[in-house]
C-alpha cells in the first residue's frame, strides 16, 4: 500500500516533468524549480540543524563495545570506548565513512521451530556502503556540469570510476553499483514481511525517487544520448546566477533534473536529514567519560545550598556553649 502510494507519486512526478518539458515549460523546469528547490534545501537544512543545536547535550550513554579507560594497567580501547576527543573523532569517522555500528548488525532466526539462532548479518551494511559511496562519487562527478572549467579532481574521479574501460561511453563502476544496491535495498524492504510491516511512505518514496534518478541518468549516458554541452550550459548558468535556457534538450534530461529537484526540496523534511543527524548521534559523539567528568544538566534549577562550614559559622557561639566539637578550633 505504502509502496503503491510512493509509486503513484513517482508516476505523477514523471508525468508532470514529461508534459511540462513537452509543452515547452523549459523556464519553469530549468530555472524556477531548481532555484526554488535549492532555496528550500538550504533554508530547510539550516533551520533543522539550528533547531537541533538548541537542544541540550544529553547525559553520556556509553553504548560501547570496548574496555573503558580506567586504571593505567587495564588496557582500554579508545576507538570503541573513547575517553577523549581524539577517540571520539576516530569513532565518528568510522561511523560516518564506514557505518561501523551497522557492521555489527545481527540477525535473529528461529531454526527448526525451536532453536533461536543469532548470526552476523552484513548484507544491509554492504548494500548501504555500496549505495552511499556510489551516490557520493556520482554526485561529485556531476560537478563537471556545474562548474567551468572542469576541476582536475573531477577528471581524476571519473578516470578511476571508468577504470575497466568497458564500452563507449565508458561504463562507470558506480552507475551499476548504485543500481544494484538500490534494487537490493528496495527488495529487502518489500520481501521481508517484518521489514515491510515497519516500512513507511517516507522509506519507500526517497528510495524509489533515487531509483528514478539513477535510471534516467544511466539511460541518458548509455542508451538515449542527450546533448550534454547544452546541459552544462544550463547547469553552469544556474550556478553562476546567469541562467541560460538551451534549445532542444531531450525531455529525458528534464525528467532526471525534476527528480533531482524533488529530492533536494524533499530533503529537509525527510529522514534524509540523517546526513547531518549522524554527526549528532549522542551514543557516538560523546566520550565515555561519565566517571571522569561531571555532567551538569542544563535545565537543573539552581539549588541553594548551606554547607557545614556556613552552618558552623552561623551557630558558632551556640555550639560552643553546648560543648559541641567545632572544625575551626
Amino acid at each position: 500500500m505504502k509502496v503503491g502510494i510512493s509509486l503513484v507519486v513517482i508516476v505523477l512526478l514523471t508525468a508532470i516533468a514529461l508534459v511540462g518539458a513537452g509543452v515547452g515549460l523549459n523556464f519553469v523546469f530549468g530555472v524556477i524549480i531548481p532555484y526554488a528547490a535549492i532555496a528550500i534545501f538550504l533554508i530547510g537544512v539550516v533551520y533543522r540543524v539550528l533547531k537541533w543545536a538548541k537542544a541540550p547535550v544529553p547525559f553520556r550513554i556509553p553504548t560501547t563495545s570496548g574496555q573503558q579507560k580506567s586504571l593505567d594497567w587495564i588496557k582500554n580501547d579508545n576507538l570503541e570506548s573513547p575517553h577523549n576527543t581524539l577517540g571520539v573523532i576516530g569513532r565518528m569517522l568510522l561511523e560516518v565513512l564506514f557505518f561501523r555500528s551497522l557492521f555489527r548488525n545481527t540477525k535473529t532466526e528461529l531454526k527448526d521451530n525451536s532453536k533461536l539462532v543469532y548470526g552476523s548479518s552484513k548484507w544491509l551494511w554492504a548494500g548501504g556502503m555500496a549505495f552511499h559511496w556510489s551516490f557520493l562519487i556520482i554526485f561529485l562527478r556531476h560537478f563537471k556540469y556545474f562548474v567551468q572549467p572542469t576541476p582536475k579532481w573531477v577528471m581524476l574521479l571519473q578516470d578511476v570510476d571508468s577504470f575497466f574501460q568497458i564500452g563507449l561511453p565508458i561504463v562507470y563502476i558506480t552507475d551499476f553499483l548504485i543500481l544494484a544496491a538500490l534494487t537490493f535495498l528496495f527488495l529487502r524492504r518489500v520481501m521481508d514481511s517484518r521489514l515491510r510491516y515497519m516500512s513507511l511512505l517516507n522509506d519507500y518514496f526517497p528510495l524509489l525517487l533515487i531509483i528514478g534518478i539513477a535510471t534516467t541518468g544511466v539511460l541518458m549516458r548509455y542508451f538515449i544520448k542527450v546533448d550534454i554541452i547544452s546541459i552544462k550550459e544550463l547547469g553552469t548558468g544556474l550556478l553562476s546566477f546567469h541562467p541560460i535556457l538551451p534549445e532542444g534538450v531531450n525531455p529525458l534530461f528534464y525528467l532526471h533534473f525534476f527528480y533531482v529537484c524533488t529530492l533536494i526540496a524533499y530533503f529537509p523534511f525527510s529522514k534524509l536529514m540523517h546526513m547531518g543527524g549522524v554527526f549528532l548521534s549522542p551514543t557516538r559523539n560523546l566520550a565515555n567519560n561519565n566517571r571522569a567528568k561531571r555532567h551538569i544538566n542544563p535545565w537543573n534549577p539552581e539549588v541553594k545550598v548551606h554547607t557545614y562550614q556556613e552552618y558552623e559559622e552561623e551557630f558558632h557561639d551556640v555550639m560552643k556553649a553546648a560543648g559541641l566539637p567545632l572544625d575551626k578550633e
Binding site: L42, V147, Q148, T236, G237, S240, H242
Partner: peptide, 17 residues
Amino acid sequence: ITFPVWYNAVNGQAGER
C-alpha cells in the same frame, strides 16, 4: 555545498558555450 557557486564566480567562465 556552495562550492560550484564560488568556483564559478572566481573563474568567471560559467555559461560560456
